[in-house]
Design a protein around this nucleic acid. Sequence first.
DNA 1: TAACTACAATATCATTTGTCATATTTCTAA
DNA 2: TTAGAAATATGACAAATGATATTGTAGTTA
Lengths: 263, 263
Amino acid sequence: MSGFKRVEPIRIPVPQLNQHHRHVLIRKLDRLIPLAEIDASALANLSVGMRQVGPRTDLLHEGDTPDEVILMLDGFAARCKFQPTGKRQILAHLLPGDLCEPDAGYLSRLDFSVCTLSACMVAFISRRALASTLERYPATAHALRLVKLQEEAISREWLVNVGCRSALERMAHLLCELLVRLQAVGFATRDGYGLPITQQDLGDTLGLSNVHVNRTLKVMRDQNLVEWRGRQLKILDLSRLQVIAAFKLGYLHSTAGHDILAQ
Amino acid sequence: MSGFKRVEPIRIPVPQLNQHHRHVLIRKLDRLIPLAEIDASALANLSVGMRQVGPRTDLLHEGDTPDEVILMLDGFAARCKFQPTGKRQILAHLLPGDLCEPDAGYLSRLDFSVCTLSACMVAFISRRALASTLERYPATAHALRLVKLQEEAISREWLVNVGCRSALERMAHLLCELLVRLQAVGFATRDGYGLPITQQDLGDTLGLSNVHVNRTLKVMRDQNLVEWRGRQLKILDLSRLQVIAAFKLGYLHSTAGHDILAQ
DNA sequence: TAACTACAATATCATTTGTCATATTTCTAA
DNA sequence: TTAGAAATATGACAAATGATATTGTAGTTA
């Protein structure tokens, strides 16, 4: 739960936002509530500045009042809180299709940072442009409110995770959650996904030491639950993983995952 | 983290909402953002049904879609998630002046319950009446958004609590948080407050067993940090408690506590 | 008052998880 | 291609926390 550095963002400009990237957010919203064509194209037409950002880089600093909203296009980022002791708690994972922080601005300063875990492709959307789109397209605004509610449900589940569950259960639960969330945006197959983060990152997410994360992964490997090599996670026995995690699909309010997971 | 029962609410009607109770919410909002007289009286004029509710009683059930908002007037309640194993995680404490759940309704069903911990005095506000007040009084609506942001900041701090801090640190942090929040509504003195909950409740809040809560309290007693007798908590050494907790006042965004706590 | 109940206090023992140390492997950059 | 850095793997041990059992205490009900 320690031993990481803080690095300034090096933004490498990238010329063109392609169709694949542009529609990640739309795909995600569509899993929560069917989106009319007009709302989808309103979102697609939001002008963005796209950037490639390296791993372990701050996208937003604690104390910032960001004037742009960041749309994740590829890679893993996280909301983090750093402790005076050097410990770090990850508050949320930001996956492709996720926005941060659309609701900042009411209170002056962020009380957490947003850091990339892997290399990421992100888009910067002007807060004003987004606000005006949401005013003109109420269905889109509603969809973003649903996203917010989903995020809150995930946060609650994370508190249950660290408060009530064993290391193995926590890990299993997180892996199930990531499967469903990544499937919703087309970043996972039926039985696996790219998981380009470190065991330390997992530990800071689950409230475990990196050593214990490693131990827990070994147990999972030995039990033929998952395989994790070269940043690629393969789930070998999803139904058993779900039982261990006591994972209930419902809290995500998404139509993803229903074909492979029990309710 | 187990051994509790679920009880149906027995609502004892109480005839009259008095001035003291009526203004708990207003007092709380005023600590976040100064409230104009017109907004205060708009809130004061919301008609409510007031009830006395016993301890260990469900105010809202998981799966409900509540059509009333509950305003806490006195006592302690909590948002709870129950696990299949029988464990319970408390997600948030609801104190006098707190509302639950003003934002429900977008998504169909609650994924948690709201239970009283102590005997409580609560007021039921019609969701429609509240919505119409908020439409007519935008400053009040803004104040409630700030409340929401404060609640989210508290949730983040709770995740840090269980994820990063030792039992002693967790407990110290929670006791500091409760001091500030209760002071904001006039339910705490400079050095103490009524804490009418059990050690089991504390454990379910902090992700600890009731036995370990007891152990931790003994350490605090032995170190002359706090005294807790007869449901009354007395803080003997606030500054040391704050240091142990690494408690930063800022995240609550309230004007309460500044006179007795370091920044 | 007596009996009952919930809560608190505490001892003992078991288990989980953290810490430290050290290889080993993989990745990265010169 | 190689040297160095970062990440992973693993063992040994320590510390924190959980589980169980027992007793005490205060409040409640009959």
